[in-house]
Design a binder for these strands. Sequence first.
DNA 1: CGCTCATTTGAACGGCGTCAAGAGGAGTGG
DNA 2: CCACTCCTCTTGACGCCGTTCAAATGAGCG
Lengths: 242, 242
Amino acid sequence: MNMMGKIAPALPDLEPGHPCFDCAVRELAVCGVLEAAALRAFKSSGPTVHYKAGDTVVFEADEAANVYSLTAGLLRLSKLLPDGRRQIAGFLFPGDFLGITMEEEHAFTAEAVAPSTLCKFPRSRFDQMVASNPQLERRLYAVAAHELAAARQQLVLLGRKTATERVASFLLMISGRCTTRQGAEIDLPISRIDMADYLGLRIETVSREISALKVARVIQLTGRQTFRIIDRNRLDQLADGE
Amino acid sequence: MNMMGKIAPALPDLEPGHPCFDCAVRELAVCGVLEAAALRAFKSSGPTVHYKAGDTVVFEADEAANVYSLTAGLLRLSKLLPDGRRQIAGFLFPGDFLGITMEEEHAFTAEAVAPSTLCKFPRSRFDQMVASNPQLERRLYAVAAHELAAARQQLVLLGRKTATERVASFLLMISGRCTTRQGAEIDLPISRIDMADYLGLRIETVSREISALKVARVIQLTGRQTFRIIDRNRLDQLADGE
DNA sequence: CGCTCATTTGAACGGCGTCAAGAGGAGTGG
DNA sequence: CCACTCCTCTTGACGCCGTTCAAATGAGCG
């Protein structure tokens, strides 16, 4: 039943002019399971759209008329309580799929954290593609199962972990997701506010915890948006509360 | 794309002797989408198993060799941190499916909260059934999407809601899930410890919040395991932090 | 009745939030 | 180059919500 990680073969028969030809995440995204012919039909059903940082892709409670595949950038999924409290349920990285729902409306708002590019498909058209491509259906299930596991892992963090453990866990997650450049320098494309709203903390607490990790020589801030892990083992320990 | 809630037709051609014939949740469960013939083949691939309250159905980190459909009882999905802290990620009610994962191991422990009955299927056999029944695949995706939405909703609760809001939300959830008997009496088959571990609180806090709701005449405890909602509107307000 | 275990209640503590001020960059204009 | 503003992030002081520790109450059951 394991299909995550099984990567579709290269598609040498896809012509260079096709928009998917040089897609950086083609094998990662849901489209990765499609044959060249199916991919052509698929892609032709929707445009590529761009959003700049801060833009809203879909509003919570909007009709779920489209689904998206993120090819570049970074999105956040969030929900706002009536009094202004906000919780971020997760981040979408390139290759991730936006629109896993059986409901008529979206349950969360999706906003661009960084300038982002997405392939946009009308839901009706997408459903047809899914119906006629069993592998796509299977891939969607795999993606949903993966997201579910991640969400449940986050439940443990929010329900039972301390501020120190949450921040340490977050930095480890980022280090696994964000391109580590030369010298293990890690990009941190997320503001303190977004970190706080993802971790169920306030920005002051996040800032204090990061400072503490810095003082303890576990990490090193190499720039406003970059850091370096000095003591990986210690960070692992802190994340697990040891 | 909406398939939740679309109930399969009755199956008059299923013989009375078949184990699924009088299954209380047949139309609710994943099996609900199967034709009588497919259902026969499906059911024959695994036995019915029983667990008493407290028993473990699958251990976290166990090999995911089987999948299950819960026909009666109540399960909890939980994870234990090394130092004993525990978080319950969700409860499974009759009709729910256990085994949504693409990994080789289970990520959470599943234990019986009440005496429970499950249909057990070897994963390999189940995958075959899924492969040859597209509707089953679609149903599984729908179930996963539904669970994902529920988990993300719980993220908001754990990350941003107060103790009062959490307990009020929980009682409302239970009132929607548990058979309300005569006089709107609601069964509460979950201990304070499980409530606390689900809500990210301590049992003393849960107890205090319930007492406060009782004193405020919002609910009424009619027994150790049953309660009644006196002021539904107020409970809704409290759950949303108004 | 007496044991055990779940739940409730009380009192004091502490981690994280709140409020407030300061530090550090990035951009703009002189 | 500095001066100024804006904004994010950091740091400090204090307060509160939920936890911790402790004990009482109550339900189930031999």
